[in-house]
Design a protein around this nucleic acid. Structure first.
Length: 817
RNA sequence: GCGGCUGUGGCGAAAUUGGUAUACGCGCAGGCUUCAGGUGCCUGUGGGCUUUACGCCCGUGGAGGUUCGAGUCCUCUCAGCCGCACCA
């Protein structure tokens, strides 16, 4: 019909230039602004190589939200930065000798370029990388505030050591006993390291999950990770050594069933207990072996239980019984007290252990056919005071009794461990403390920040941080006494950097504080956070902890950083995760060049619900490109046929095809608006704009030019959040106006209603006929209309109509016998 | 083992509260336009049956149930994916 061609290569740069020149997406900090604020944020990218499809999807989702909020009356903060410290850049440096700063800068440049080519509406005035001194200065400053409050501390502990990356790892970074980054089995090492006291916040991190709008599965994962258990702490005495060993139990009702006692190999008293007994040598050997085993070797629940007796007994406080003490590696030093009472009749692990070593098993709760029985029931074989009582009640009574005797009390335990933040690696934020022979650990004063990351020649970790080789940097003077001192050479876990970046965006250029609290209060919390589910317990837990700790210091008023969270699904290729090793990586660049950014962006959203994983198919991309081309071409034809038009609905007097098209436009407005408010149903929103476009084609020769222009301009307006260039261009061609300056369209309810509806007629729930009926018709009118249909008559003749169900506007159902 | 999610055409998927199952897109088939086209436009497309009709039957992983009516609610079950995994 025309030679006019949809050419994204022309229109996309044209609009990008306008947005760049006019700084369209820049937003001012203005406490007096009339509009409410909306802080829309996608997780900041880790700049390694070039952006991939996951980035394209992530920022397409976020940009759609940002655009929609802007046009529905919000002042939107939509910033960008780079999580630039980290292992991949450093490993690259080890291989090539190139400074991580260089490769990181090159990658950041790629991201900057592509974000602009994608047309993402970013406020570039707030951009930073976490590796820049102007940023990490404040990471260090925040570390010192946590240190002052005792929330950062140093201790020796059994930590996870990755022999490949030559660094310690946080608990959260160990997956199935292996390093999260490289997959190497993790070893246990006894080292002195820096920790954040995140466990102090366990209760609040758990309870406040109820105050935020997050996907339930992420909430569940965090809840499980924190792992709060309620129970009791009960002391078992060892008279020979004149000591007492408290244990944590969630089942104080089974105390009378405790037949032995087990300590973790790491327990500080195990060797002392075994000393001088016949089992001393055996115990010593067992403990030594257990301590050198990797987490993976030790960790599995299905492996056969091992352990040795220590040749001692302790006294069960409820009945004075002496029970033998064992050491076994199924007891963990990190959880509870590092010692347990074993109740083999009612605990699977204790049962397996008792069977293996021939230890007695005593049932104290009735129920179940076989042992171990972990359910509820009446207490037996215990004390006359408790026998016959339901075990749930007995729990309370037994703890109360022990408490009154001073031998126990209620207690809560958590699975969550403190956050180990030291890393023996180069490319990270230096920890701002020095070690002085006289003064000990001395924080670097605020006015000496940042502690710069020194240059080194060898990035290879050798069990010590590469920073240790920067002698001139390491040797410094003590800020406290002026004597010689050495700098901390470990760097921080990069999750520290990303635990507060969203606050820095609010006041990114501040060089006298991490932020001005008043400006921060204007923007925080993030209203909509968008990112991958892989951060469900790592980044998202750490950022919540930081926010709460800083809130306690009065630095932030928000208790939660991310009011709402959306986790987008992965883009796969042939059903598999894209990875360089599989060779199935597809780069957004090729598609952006060939079809334009709008097509690539729309496709990542149209492919399916955005929280679901989706498989990339080139055919699907074609389909989306065809749709944008159809919209653009028809609009170009209309625009070429006369003057530019003012977008208005022309509701009055429209009839016939004009009215039908007008209705379809309003239906689409309603559908898209609904799909985007409180939901992320972008796939069906785009489908609705496709339907509207199809309707424009179907009626293009039957409607007035103005109506066609209105319908097409509406389609452009609605597709703009997903395909901003095409949306802007079409809108401009038809109206001469800028779509992003237009308020979001509002559907006219009168045009959503129809005066005639298709009534479904069922007999016994089966569809038998359809008939046009006035929408306003009364129930009995609808019934007689339906009853009068010949086809329906055929089903009703000779039968008893026992019931008639009428749903006005929908259906009539005759129940016959 | 525990917890969570998902099962709908040849494929990706729709179906806000129980009310016409399969919107939209891909693919496929046919037609028109074109010198041509891997372009554009139009039409058709869940399966089966027959008397080819304004027809009937079946159909949302499987089996039951509730209801006038179930993709949607309940019970059991199968399959796949994800998370946690000796946490006392």
């Amino acid at each position: 019909m025309t030679e006019r061609r949809y050419d994204p290569r022309t229109i996309e740069p044209k609009w990008q230039a306008v947005w760049e020149r006019e700084r369209t997406w820049q937003v001012a900090d203005d406490p007096d602004a009339g509009n409410p604020k909306a802080y829309v944020l996608e997780m900041l990218p880790y700049p390694s190589g070039e952006p991939h499809m996951g980035h394209l999807k992530n920022y397409s989702v976020g940009d759609a939200v940002a655009h929609f909020r802007r046009r529905t009356g919000f002042r939107v903060l939509h910033p960008m930065g780079y999580d630039a410290f980290g292992l991949p850049a450093e490993n690259h440096a080890i291989r090539t000798g190139e400074h991580p700063r260089v490769s990181t800068a090159a990658s950041i440049e790629q991201f900057q370029k592509q974000f602009r080519e994608w047309g993402i509406s970013i406020d570039w005035s707030r951009e930073f990388g976490t590796h820049e001194p102007r940023y990490y200065r404040w990471t260090q400053w925040l570390f010192l505030r946590l240190l002052e409050r005792g929330l950062a501390y140093r201790k020796e502990a059994a930590v996870n050591w990755c022999p490949n990356d030559q660094t310690v790892l946080a608990n959260e970074q160990v997956i199935d006993g292996r390093c999260e980054r490289c997959g190497t089995p993790v070893e246990a090492r006894q080292l002195e390291q820096w920790f954040f006291r995140i466990t102090d916040y366990a209760d609040r991190l758990l309870d406040d999950l109820e105050t935020i709008d997050w996907p339930p599965h992420v909430v569940t994962m965090q809840r499980n990770w924190i792992g709060r258990s309620k129970g009791a702490e009960v002391s078992f005495a060892c008279p020979e050594l004149d000591t007492e060993y408290p244990v944590f139990t969630t089942r104080p009702d089974t105390l009378f069933g405790a037949t032995f006692f087990v300590m973790a190999p790491e327990h500080p008293d195990v060797l002392r207990l075994a000393a001088g007994t016949e089992h001393e040598t055996e115990a010593r050997e067992y403990i030594n072996r257990a301590l050198t085993e990797s987490r993976e070797e030790r960790g599995s629940a299905d492996r056969e239980k091992t352990g040795v007796p220590l040749g001692r007994t302790v006294v069960n406080p409820v009945n004075g019984e002496r029970i033998p003490v064992w050491v076994a590696d199924y007891v963990l030093m990190e959880y509870g007290t590092g010692a347990i009472m074993a109740v083999p009749a009612h605990d699977e692990r204790d049962h397996a252990f008792a069977v293996r070593f021939g230890l007695p098993i005593r049932r104290v709760v009735e129920g179940g056919e076989e042992l171990p029985y972990t359910g509820d029931g009446p207490i037996v074989n215990s004390d006359p005071r408790f026998d016959g009582m339901h075990n749930r009640e007995a729990m309370e009574s037994i703890v109360d009794w022990l408490d009154s005797e001073g031998r126990g009390h209620r207690s809560v335990n958590y699975r969550l461990r403190d956050w180990l933040l030291s890393r023996q690696r180069y490319w990270g934020c230096p920890i701002p403390v020095v070690y002085c022979a006289d003064c000990g650990i001395v924080p670097v004063p605020d006015d000496q920040l940042p502690v710069p990351l020194p240059d080194v020649t060898d990035y290879k970790p050798k069990g010590r941080s590469p920073l240790a080789t920067a002698e001139a940097w390491v040797h410094t003077t003590c800020p406290s006494c002026g004597g010689p001192a050495e700098r901390e050479t470990d760097t921080m876990d990069t999750f520290v950097d990303s635990s507060w970046y969203f606050m820095r965006y609010c006041d990114a250029d501040n060089d006298s504080a991490p932020w001005d609290p008043e400006i921060l209060a204007q923007w925080m919390p993030v209203d909509q956070y968008i990112g991958g589910v892989e951060h469900a317990v790592l980044h998202l837990m750490y950022a919540r902890f930081f926010t709460k700790a800083l809130a306690d210091m009065g630095l932030v008023s928000a208790q939660e950083p991310f009011k709402a969270l959306f986790t987008q699904g992965m883009i796969t290729r042939d059903g598999a995760k894209m990875s360089k090793s599989k060779g199935n990586v597809i780069s957004p660049t090729a598609y952006v060049e060939r079809y334009g950014a709008d097509t690539a962006r729309c496709y990542t959203l149209f492919i399916g619900p955005p929280d679901q994983d989706a498989d990339w198919k080139d055919d699907g991309v074609e389909g989306v490109h065809r749709f944008l081309g159809r919209l653009w071409r028809l609009a170009a034809d209309v625009a070429a046929s006369g003057d530019v038009l003012v977008p208005e609905s022309r509701a009055n007097g429209a009839a016939g095809d004009d009215l039908e098209l007008l209705r379809k436009a309003h239906w689409a407005i309603d559908k898209v608006t609904g799909d985007m408010t409180g939901r992320f149903a972008f796939n069906t929103a785009i489908a609705a704009v496709m339907e509207l476009t199809n309707e424009c084609y179907a009626r293009r020769d039957a409607v007035q030019r103005e109506m066609l222009a209105f319908a097409l301009a509406t389609a452009a307006s609605l597709i703009f959040p997903f395909a901003p260039h095409c949306g802007a261009d079409v809108y401009d061609m038809l109206t001469g106006r800028r779509v992003w300056e237009e308020p979001w369209p509002v559907a006219d309810p009168a045009l959503l209603e129809r005066d005639v509806v298709e009534l479904v007629v069922q007999v016994n729930g089966k569809l038998r006929d359809r008939v046009e009926a006035p929408a306003a018709a009364a129930r009995d009118e609808l019934e007689s209309l339906a009853r009068g249909r010949p086809r329906v008559q055929g089903y009703l003749d000779g039968k008893d109509v026992v019931k008639v169900v009428v749903v006005p506007g929908r259906l009539v159902n005759f129940v016959v016998r």
